[in-house]
Design a protein around this nucleic acid. Structure first.
Length: 646
RNA sequence: GCUCAUAUAGCUCAGUCGGUAGAGCACUUGCUUGGUAAGUAAGAGGUCACCGGUUCAAGUCCGGUUAUGAGCUCCA
């Protein structure tokens, strides 16, 4: 029998007989590895550990310690264990698909009964007994027609559909357990041995459309998470708990920042403290934009449908627009208006007032534009997805040649702002021309390369998202990473060759000819509502001093110090510091607890000692130590801290 | 919009088999003036989301509506 050379990742070569498997190779290296092996990568393709290898190859053994290994284990868990458990408990259930996702997996079933979260322990138990049985998983290959026959006989119509739609004719892989007691179609690889499953937990159940299309049947989706051992599983579950603690809806209620109610779903009732954050953030942004040569404008909320027809929104997004009509009995004119869902058509109207010269460009308009969009009820989510919101919107009218500089300047500004708001890391995505689009390929070429050049001139990494651009032009999206590693897409920079044309924006070039400007839609925060939600979760409610709704709590030990405390309050307030005065007849530890819970960054305590020496005792949020300061020094220090970043 | 779940005091939540509403915190009042995360006693507080049905009787069972949650779809 002939031999093959198998090259390992470290460059060493092992010579084995032709047809040896990954397991044979692992065994050749050592019994420990053989035991830990769960699959093998052969020339960059993942294979089952028992698949024969027939030619010289680059190979590496996959164990559960790698991300790849974890994924294979999760895949086997969902496709072989969860699917089988559900079939055991609900024999009429049909299998759809069961992929892995970040940290876990799901499986979609078509089940007559409704499955609720209370059924999950029962399913978990069944899964555990399947695993305990420790069945071996074997694989067989089928042609398209044979595979179809198998699933037809099992009445697995979804599997049939998948096979039918595949352009592959041969080599459909079917994985079997226990002499055909259970069979599933899968591209693999799978564990060969259910004993290698780690620790798992089913987490939730929900509906999901077959093939992700809302025209299709709603299936039952069961989610789970799986890890190599109990320790990792626990760690993950703790992380989830941590994220729940940061939930901005919970913190928003606890800290009295905002609320929602039935009469205005998706619209925020901002309370004093939340609105303080909002105003502070907005003033910060206003200052930033002024420093960067934006002209702040403000445009109407309610605008005749004619403008939305002209812009194209009426056709495309009518169903998401709030329409207002004047009461027919009282109106002397009949017109239909829409609450603006976006600011750009109005900005073109401002641009169109007066003839513009090429010497005027670029013109950068900014608006804290209050918009309304009728979002589907199921998509609403606290501050993160609302129906009434305010964008830090801006539109830059410029020539094509100016796009590159505008993009570069924008990225610089955005990066500075994200950093000052506490987000150090962000990623850029460049979305290129989609299939259905307006404008010539030549213009798209120029637009895409100007965005690309702009990023590259700054030297930041970016990811290309082919085909993800808007129909009117390519865009850059900016995704920031928060304190617990979650990603949020906030900023955007979109080149638009369409709207200026539809709404007849023009400028006069240096030959005296009328030209169409490019319009750039751009935002840094996205919406104030959502961004504040992100800030709250990023900081777990402990906002930096300058953003905190209340910055200093002034507390007294006994009523003897009431006057002194009131004087401190006045001094701080005169410097614009946001304070609360607490002269209640309560013990100091009670007051400390309350203001700590309220996440006020500084708690000042004064008693007889402080009063006599014109000092204050300071306790910072998150510390249980106190420090003594001269009152005047303290006021100066706090004044610096309270200033928004420039 | 779709699937499933949930809705009880200001907040967090109990409420068994259908029999007339409960806790902790918060609030009000009294006592307490106490040096860094809950001093103490009493009191008040409810159309059990809304509409309808079953029943002698509904917070509890059934139907609908609204909102919320998880996910799906969507996000100009």
């Amino acid at each position: 029998m002939s031999e093959i050379n198998l090259t390992l990742p470290d460059g060493s070569v092992r010579v084995l007989q032709k047809g040896s498997s990954g397991y044979d190779l692992a065994l050749d290296i050592g019994p420990g590895l053989a035991k830990a092996s769960i699959a093998v990568t052969v020339n960059d393709v993942q294979k089952d550990i028992n698949d024969p290898i027939d030619e010289d190859s680059r190979v590496s053994i996959i164990t559960i310690d790698s991300e790849e290994g974890l994924e294979i284990m999760r895949h086997t868990l969902t496709a072989q264990v969860l699917a089988r458990a559900v079939k055991n408990l609900y024999p009429k259930a049909k299998l759809a698909i069961g992929p892995t996702i970040k940290d876990g997996f799901y499986y979609d079933f078509d089940i007559e009964q409704t499955i609720s979260i209370d059924d999950l322990p029962k399913i978990e138990n069944e899964m555990n007994s399947i695993i305990k049985k420790g069945s071996k998983i074997t694989k067989r290959y089928f042609s398209k027609s044979e595979a179809l026959k198998v699933f037809k006989s099992l009445d697995e119509s979804y599997k049939g559909e998948i096979i039918n739609d595949s352009d592959q004719e041969e080599n459909f892989q079917l994985y079997y357990q226990d002499n055909d007691e259970f069979v599933d179609l899968c591209r693999g690889p799978h564990l060969t041995d259910l004993n290698k499953i780690g620790a798992f937990k089913l987490t939730k159940v929900s509906g999901a459309y077959w093939r992700g299309s809302s025209d299709n049947k709603m299936l039952t989706r069961i989610y789970g998470t799986a890890w190599k051992d109990d320790k990792d599983l626990k760690k993950y579950l703790n992380q989830i708990e941590e994220a729940e603690k940061r939930d901005h809806r919970k913190i928003g209620k606890e800290l009295e920042l905002f609320h929602f109610q039935d009469e205005a779903p998706g619209m925020v009732f901002w309370h004093e403290k939340g609105w303080t954050i909002y105003k502070t953030l907005q003033n910060y942004m206003r200052n930033k934009l002024e420093l960067n040569d934006y002209k702040e404008i403000n445009t109407p909320q309610v605008v005749d449908r004619k403008l939305w027809e002209a812009s194209g929104h009426w056709d495309k997004y009518r169903e998401n627009m709030y329409i207002t009509e004047i009461d027919e009995e009282h109106a002397n004119e009949k017109r239909t208006n829409a609450l603006k869902p976006m600011n750009c058509p109005c900005h073109v109207q401002v641009y169109n007032q007066g003839l513009k010269s090429y010497k005027d460009l670029p013109i950068r308009y900014a608006e804290f534009g209050s918009c309304h969009r009728y979002e589907a009820s199921g998509t609403l989510h606290g501050l993160m997805r609302v129906r009434g919101f305010t964008q830090d919107d801006g539109h830059i009218f410029c020539t094509e040649d100016q796009i590159k500089d505008e993009a570069a300047n924008f990225i610089k500004l955005l990066s500075e702002i994200y950093n000052q708001l506490g987000f150090e890391k962000f990623d850029i995505k460049l979305s290129t021309r989609p299939e259905t689009r307006v404008g010539s390929d030549e213009v798209w070429d120029r637009a895409e390369s100007s965005l690309q050049n702009a990023i590259e001139s700054i030297g930041i990494d970016y990811e290309v998202m082919p085909g993800d651009g808007a129909f009117y032009g390519p865009k850059l999206d900016f995704v920031l990473t928060d304190a617990i590693g979650r990603e949020w897409q906030c900023g955007t920079f979109q080149a638009d060759f369409n709207l200026p044309d539809r709404l007849s924006a023009e400028y006069v070039d240096n030959d005296g000819n009328k030209q169409m400007p490019v319009m750039i839609h751009r935002a840094i925060l996205g919406s104030f509502e959502r961004f504040i939600g992100i800030l709250i979760e990023n900081y777990a409610g402990k906002l930096p001093f300058w953003l905190a709704p209340k910055q200093v709590a002034i507390t007294t030990i006994t009523s003897d110090s009431n006057e002194y405390a009131a004087k401190i309050m006045q001094d701080l307030q005169s410097k614009g510091i946001r304070c609360v005065l607490d002269i209640r007849n309560e013990k100091i530890s009670y007051k400390i607890r309350e203001h700590s819970t309220a996440k006020i960054p500084y708690i000042v305590t004064v008693g007889n000692k402080e009063m006599e020496n014109s000092t204050i005792s300071l306790r910072k949020l998150g510390s249980n130590e106190t420090s003594l300061h001269k009152l005047n020094d303290f006021i100066q220090e706090v004044e610096l801290l309270a200033a928004a970043p420039k």
